[in-house]
Amino acid sequence: MTETPAPLRDSAFVQALFDVVIPPSDDGKLPGAGSLGLASTLAAQLEADPVFGPPVQAGLQAVYNAALARDPAGFAALPPQARVEVVESQLGAHPMLMIGLTLHLYPAYYQHPRVLEGLGEPPRPPFPEGYDLEPTDPHLLEHLRTQPRT
């Protein structure tokens, strides 16, 4: 079994970092990504991703360490703007960090039942209930019926 990298085992760090990437919406309808328990999913995906996995993990470690250097209580203890600054301070050395992280975090977030509900989507698979579809505008069809046959 592969060991989860240190930053992703620190739930406070994960929650705070994911909330930096996708914060709660101002109207409260959409949760922050940190509150959805996505850490283990992300860790597994990054382990399996040979392209983005290593640079993202290296970047996460760098953010983790930079936060500790700034405050011994770590990333989660920093005020919101300071968290953003810490992340941004590492992007020069770790340019793949946010690309790789969002590539995995965005889909995980936008398929979570709470997020789907917040978007006004039913929090379920498409099948078996399916969806309604607006019928064809009869005026459009009327126009087609006037076309000459070939």
Binding site: V20, V21, I22, P23, S25, D26, L30, V84, M98, L101, T102, L103, Y106, P107, Y109, Y110, Q111, V115, L116, L119, E121
Partner: peptide
């Protein structure tokens, strides 16, 4: 769909991480 929207939007600069995401 939602996830594809987020990825497509990220790639084209519509959906940033952080402030302005939503």
């Amino acid at each position: 769909a939602p996830a594809q929207t987020s990825l497509w939007g990220m790639a084209r600069g519509f959906v940033p991480w952080g402030e302005g995401h939503h």
